[in-house]
Amino acid sequence: MLQKAYPLIGRTLIAPHTHSFSIDCPDMAALARPGQFVHVRLPGFLLRRPISVCQITQDGLRIVVEERGAGTEEMARLGSGDLIDLLGPLGNGFLTEAPHRRAVLVGGGIGTPPLLPLAEHYHKAEVFLGFRSADRAILTEDFEAAGATVTLATEDGSAGHHGYVTEPLEQHLARHGADVLYACGPEPMLKAVQALAAKYHVTAYLSLEARMACGVGACLGCAVPILTAEGVVYRHVCKDGPVFPAEEVVL
């Protein structure tokens, strides 16, 4: 873990109110694994914002941020050359299997970015991405560039499948099955994915989010209920997660 201010190399608007940041942080990138997150400190705000890692290169990290509140709006004002104070990499990230295994990735909205490193890990990932509308779709070309097959779904039908992403996902699982499945997105989507993984007997992992303070396991703020041998207990998104086996997540 490191805490440092790093230079932003660039910010790109990739969808309305959604920004992609490239950060010059080779030392932090060298420690990062898919599914981990960085904790971003912003001027004028007390608590850091947890943001998942979208890409890991030798030179640094890429993160994608949607403006959702005052903190992320402040972040959207940062530009090339500005310094960004990061704590990270945090969390455990995704457990990965051998690259030839048949992996299915399911992303909903701003839950999509942490899945991209998995598309780079697996040779031919099947990726299902759901957005509200065509203009909100992000990273589809990045997934394709990583060698993945992308199936798009939009709630308003403006691109791809008209409806929820879990519908084409179920068709795929029914026809082809999968060795391992990873999902990140809104809670109703995660709940549906969890049910499908159980129905089609696929090992699955869900990446969760929670209101968070420290990011390192000290404050016990980001509690989520998790099913264990001793019953349901609170685990913490920052230190025990953000990724949990799907069958253990209580949604």
Partner: peptide, 8 residues
């Protein structure tokens, strides 16, 4: 166990 979330 502590309190149910959100806690922060």
């Amino acid at each position: 166990q502590g309190n149910p979330p959100p806690r922060i």
